[in-house]
Amino acid sequence: MSKPIAVIVGVGDGLSASLARRLSPEYELHLCARGPDKMRAVAEETGAATHLIDGTDAGATAALFDGLPEAPRVAIYNPSARVHGGIAELDPVEVRRAVEITAFGAFLTAQAAARRMLAAQPDDRGIRGTILFTGASAGVKGFPRSSVFAMGKFAQRGLAESLSRELHPEGIHVAWINIDGAIRNPGRSEAADNPDSMLDPDAIAEAYAGLIAQDRSTWSHELTLRPWVEKF
Protein backbone atom coordinates (compact mmCIF):
# COMPACT_ATOMS: atom_id res chain seq x y z
CA MET A 1 0.00 0.00 0.00
CA SER A 2 1.16 3.53 -0.73
CA LYS A 3 2.01 5.88 2.10
CA PRO A 4 -0.40 8.66 3.06
CA ILE A 5 0.61 12.14 1.92
CA ALA A 6 2.00 14.91 4.13
CA VAL A 7 2.54 18.45 2.82
CA ILE A 8 4.89 20.89 4.56
CA VAL A 9 4.67 24.48 3.35
CA GLY A 10 7.66 26.72 4.07
CA VAL A 11 10.66 24.41 4.21
CA GLY A 12 14.16 25.32 5.31
CA ASP A 13 16.93 23.74 7.34
CA GLY A 14 15.41 24.25 10.80
CA LEU A 15 12.09 23.10 12.24
CA SER A 16 10.61 22.14 8.87
CA ALA A 17 13.60 19.89 8.17
CA SER A 18 13.07 18.19 11.53
CA LEU A 19 9.39 17.75 10.68
CA ALA A 20 10.29 16.21 7.32
CA ARG A 21 12.72 13.76 8.88
CA ARG A 22 10.20 12.79 11.57
CA LEU A 23 7.35 12.19 9.11
CA SER A 24 9.28 10.64 6.22
CA PRO A 25 9.17 7.01 7.44
CA GLU A 26 5.36 7.09 7.54
CA TYR A 27 4.38 9.56 4.83
CA GLU A 28 4.95 10.43 1.20
CA LEU A 29 6.35 13.92 1.69
CA HIS A 30 5.71 16.99 -0.42
CA LEU A 31 7.91 19.95 0.54
CA CYS A 32 7.10 23.50 -0.55
CA ALA A 33 9.16 26.69 -0.60
CA ARG A 34 9.67 29.80 -2.73
CA GLY A 35 13.23 28.75 -3.64
CA PRO A 36 14.94 25.36 -4.05
CA ASP A 37 18.12 25.91 -2.04
CA LYS A 38 16.82 25.58 1.50
CA MET A 39 14.83 22.42 0.89
CA ARG A 40 17.26 20.61 -1.41
CA ALA A 41 19.24 18.82 1.31
CA VAL A 42 16.24 17.63 3.31
CA ALA A 43 14.48 16.51 0.13
CA GLU A 44 17.49 14.41 -0.83
CA GLU A 45 17.69 13.00 2.69
CA THR A 46 14.00 12.07 2.94
CA GLY A 47 13.18 11.30 -0.69
CA ALA A 48 10.51 13.98 -0.67
CA ALA A 49 8.95 15.64 -3.70
CA THR A 50 9.57 19.38 -3.92
CA HIS A 51 7.35 22.19 -5.14
CA LEU A 52 8.33 25.80 -5.78
CA ILE A 53 5.41 27.97 -4.70
CA ASP A 54 4.73 31.23 -2.94
CA GLY A 55 2.38 30.38 -0.09
CA THR A 56 0.48 33.65 -0.61
CA ASP A 57 -0.39 32.75 -4.21
CA ALA A 58 -3.96 31.42 -4.15
CA GLY A 59 -3.78 29.81 -7.58
CA ALA A 60 -0.45 28.10 -6.97
CA THR A 61 -1.53 26.79 -3.57
CA ALA A 62 -4.79 25.40 -4.91
CA ALA A 63 -3.00 23.82 -7.86
CA LEU A 64 -0.49 22.16 -5.55
CA PHE A 65 -3.15 20.45 -3.43
CA ASP A 66 -5.43 19.69 -6.37
CA GLY A 67 -2.48 18.04 -8.14
CA LEU A 68 -1.70 15.59 -5.36
CA PRO A 69 -2.47 11.98 -6.30
CA GLU A 70 -4.80 11.71 -3.30
CA ALA A 71 -5.99 13.88 -0.43
CA PRO A 72 -3.25 14.71 2.07
CA ARG A 73 -3.49 13.27 5.55
CA VAL A 74 -1.27 16.02 6.97
CA ALA A 75 -0.76 19.67 6.00
CA ILE A 76 1.62 21.90 7.97
CA TYR A 77 2.00 25.65 7.44
CA ASN A 78 5.28 27.14 8.71
CA PRO A 79 5.94 30.53 7.03
CA SER A 80 5.82 33.82 8.86
CA ALA A 81 7.33 37.27 8.41
CA ARG A 82 8.40 40.02 10.78
CA VAL A 83 8.66 43.75 10.29
CA HIS A 84 10.08 45.49 13.35
CA GLY A 85 9.49 49.13 14.17
CA GLY A 86 7.33 51.70 15.88
CA ILE A 87 3.85 52.18 14.52
CA ALA A 88 4.64 55.66 13.16
CA GLU A 89 7.55 54.45 11.02
CA LEU A 90 6.28 51.20 9.52
CA ASP A 91 6.07 50.87 5.73
CA PRO A 92 2.49 49.84 4.83
CA VAL A 93 3.70 47.84 1.83
CA GLU A 94 6.05 45.78 4.00
CA VAL A 95 3.33 45.37 6.62
CA ARG A 96 0.83 44.07 4.06
CA ARG A 97 3.33 41.56 2.69
CA ALA A 98 4.28 40.29 6.16
CA VAL A 99 0.66 39.77 7.21
CA GLU A 100 -0.05 38.03 3.90
CA ILE A 101 2.78 35.57 4.52
CA THR A 102 1.89 34.82 8.14
CA ALA A 103 -1.91 34.86 7.99
CA PHE A 104 -3.29 34.85 4.45
CA GLY A 105 -0.93 32.08 3.37
CA ALA A 106 -2.09 30.01 6.34
CA PHE A 107 -5.68 30.48 5.18
CA LEU A 108 -4.83 29.41 1.61
CA THR A 109 -3.08 26.24 2.73
CA ALA A 110 -5.90 25.38 5.12
CA GLN A 111 -8.55 25.99 2.47
CA ALA A 112 -6.83 23.92 -0.20
CA ALA A 113 -6.02 21.08 2.20
CA ALA A 114 -9.51 21.04 3.72
CA ARG A 115 -11.19 20.85 0.31
CA ARG A 116 -9.26 17.67 -0.52
CA MET A 117 -9.68 16.19 2.96
CA LEU A 118 -13.43 16.80 3.09
CA ALA A 119 -13.84 14.89 -0.16
CA ALA A 120 -11.81 11.92 1.15
CA GLN A 121 -12.98 8.90 3.07
CA PRO A 122 -12.03 8.84 6.77
CA ASP A 123 -9.58 6.24 8.04
CA ASP A 124 -10.46 3.51 10.53
CA ARG A 125 -10.21 6.08 13.33
CA GLY A 126 -12.80 8.30 11.65
CA ILE A 127 -10.13 10.87 10.70
CA ARG A 128 -9.76 12.53 7.32
CA GLY A 129 -6.62 14.54 8.04
CA THR A 130 -4.67 16.96 10.21
CA ILE A 131 -3.89 20.64 9.57
CA LEU A 132 -1.23 22.24 11.77
CA PHE A 133 -0.05 25.86 11.98
CA THR A 134 3.33 26.88 13.42
CA GLY A 135 2.53 29.75 15.74
CA ALA A 136 4.47 31.87 18.20
CA SER A 137 4.01 33.65 21.51
CA ALA A 138 3.19 36.77 19.45
CA GLY A 139 -0.20 35.18 18.80
CA VAL A 140 -0.95 35.36 22.52
CA LYS A 141 0.75 38.61 23.54
CA GLY A 142 1.87 41.52 21.41
CA PHE A 143 5.32 42.93 22.11
CA PRO A 144 6.53 46.53 21.61
CA ARG A 145 7.66 47.37 18.07
CA SER A 146 6.36 44.00 16.90
CA SER A 147 2.78 44.89 15.99
CA VAL A 148 3.06 43.40 12.50
CA PHE A 149 4.12 39.96 13.73
CA ALA A 150 1.41 40.10 16.40
CA MET A 151 -1.25 40.88 13.78
CA GLY A 152 -0.20 37.93 11.67
CA LYS A 153 0.07 35.43 14.49
CA PHE A 154 -3.15 36.54 16.22
CA ALA A 155 -4.94 36.12 12.87
CA GLN A 156 -3.36 32.69 12.38
CA ARG A 157 -4.39 31.61 15.86
CA GLY A 158 -7.96 32.82 15.30
CA LEU A 159 -8.08 30.97 12.00
CA ALA A 160 -7.01 27.74 13.68
CA GLU A 161 -9.54 28.10 16.48
CA SER A 162 -12.39 28.80 14.08
CA LEU A 163 -11.41 25.91 11.81
CA SER A 164 -11.16 23.59 14.79
CA ARG A 165 -14.81 24.21 15.58
CA GLU A 166 -15.78 23.86 11.92
CA LEU A 167 -13.68 20.88 10.89
CA HIS A 168 -13.26 18.70 13.97
CA PRO A 169 -16.80 17.34 13.54
CA GLU A 170 -15.84 16.46 9.95
CA GLY A 171 -12.88 14.35 11.06
CA ILE A 172 -10.20 16.95 10.33
CA HIS A 173 -7.93 17.78 13.25
CA VAL A 174 -6.78 21.43 13.29
CA ALA A 175 -4.27 22.79 15.81
CA TRP A 176 -2.10 25.86 16.34
CA ILE A 177 1.27 25.35 18.01
CA ASN A 178 2.62 28.24 20.06
CA ILE A 179 6.42 28.07 19.77
CA ASP A 180 7.08 30.19 22.84
CA GLY A 181 10.83 30.75 22.55
CA ALA A 182 13.73 30.67 20.13
CA ILE A 183 14.40 27.49 18.15
CA ARG A 184 17.87 25.94 18.16
CA ASN A 185 18.21 25.98 14.38
CA PRO A 186 21.47 25.27 12.53
CA GLY A 187 24.07 27.92 13.31
CA ARG A 188 22.14 29.08 16.37
CA SER A 189 22.85 27.97 19.93
CA GLU A 190 22.31 29.04 23.51
CA ALA A 191 24.76 31.18 25.43
CA ALA A 192 27.07 29.18 27.65
CA ASP A 193 25.53 30.69 30.77
CA ASN A 194 21.95 29.92 29.64
CA PRO A 195 21.73 26.24 28.66
CA ASP A 196 18.44 24.74 27.47
CA SER A 197 17.05 28.20 26.70
CA MET A 198 16.13 27.25 23.12
CA LEU A 199 13.68 24.67 21.79
CA ASP A 200 15.16 21.60 20.12
CA PRO A 201 13.59 21.37 16.62
CA ASP A 202 13.57 17.56 16.74
CA ALA A 203 11.65 17.70 20.02
CA ILE A 204 9.17 20.14 18.46
CA ALA A 205 8.72 17.73 15.55
CA GLU A 206 7.96 14.95 18.00
CA ALA A 207 5.23 17.10 19.55
CA TYR A 208 3.71 17.67 16.06
CA ALA A 209 3.75 13.90 15.49
CA GLY A 210 1.94 13.47 18.79
CA LEU A 211 -0.79 15.86 17.63
CA ILE A 212 -1.16 13.95 14.37
CA ALA A 213 -1.51 10.67 16.28
CA GLN A 214 -4.00 11.97 18.88
CA ASP A 215 -7.19 10.02 19.33
CA ARG A 216 -10.09 12.23 18.29
CA SER A 217 -11.63 11.85 21.74
CA THR A 218 -8.73 13.98 23.04
CA TRP A 219 -7.95 16.37 20.18
CA SER A 220 -6.04 19.50 21.11
CA HIS A 221 -6.75 22.66 19.12
CA GLU A 222 -3.80 24.53 20.65
CA LEU A 223 -0.46 23.47 22.10
CA THR A 224 2.22 25.63 23.73
CA LEU A 225 5.86 24.52 23.66
CA ARG A 226 8.50 26.37 25.66
CA PRO A 227 11.88 25.61 27.25
CA TRP A 228 11.62 24.95 30.96
CA VAL A 229 13.61 28.12 31.62
CA GLU A 230 11.37 30.33 29.46
CA LYS A 231 9.37 32.97 31.35
CA PHE A 232 5.57 32.79 31.04
Rank of each mutant, 00 (worst) to 15 (best):
P4F: 05
V7A: 00
V9P: 03
G14A: 12
L15F: 00
L15D: 04
S16D: 07
A17E: 04
S18H: 00
S18I: 01
S18A: 07
L19I: 03
A20N: 00
R21V: 07
L23I: 09
L23Q: 04
L23Y: 03
S24A: 15
P25K: 15
L29T: 13
L31A: 05
D37Y: 11
M39A: 10
R40Q: 06
A41F: 03
V42G: 04
E44D: 14
E44I: 01
A49H: 05
T50D: 04
T50L: 00
I53W: 10
D54W: 09
T56E: 04
D57K: 09
G59V: 06
A62S: 14
A63P: 01
E70A: 11
P72L: 02
V74W: 04
A75F: 02
Y77H: 08
S80Y: 06
S80Q: 06
G86Q: 13
D91Q: 06
D91M: 07
V93M: 03
R97E: 07
A98D: 06
E100Q: 09
F104M: 13
A106Y: 00
L108K: 03
A110F: 08
A110G: 13
A112T: 11
A112Y: 09
R116F: 08
M117Y: 00
M117R: 05
L118W: 00
L118A: 13
A119T: 12
A120Q: 06
R128A: 10
T130V: 07
T130Q: 03
I131A: 14
I131N: 03
F133C: 11
G142D: 11
G142Y: 10
F143R: 13
F143C: 08
P144T: 12
S147A: 10
V148N: 10
F149H: 10
F149L: 15
M151H: 08
G152I: 02
G152Q: 01
Q156R: 04
R157Y: 01
G158N: 04
L159C: 04
A160V: 10
E161Q: 14
E161I: 14
S162V: 14
L163Y: 03
L163D: 07
E166G: 13
L167P: 09
I172M: 10
I179W: 03
I179Q: 11
A182D: 15
A182L: 15
R184Q: 14
R184C: 03
P186F: 09
S189N: 02
M198S: 09
D202A: 07
I204R: 03
A205P: 09
A207G: 04
L211C: 15
D215Q: 14
T218M: 14
T224M: 13
L225H: 10
L225M: 14
R226F: 11
P227A: 07
W228M: 12
W228Q: 14
K231E: 11
K231Y: 15
F232C: 06
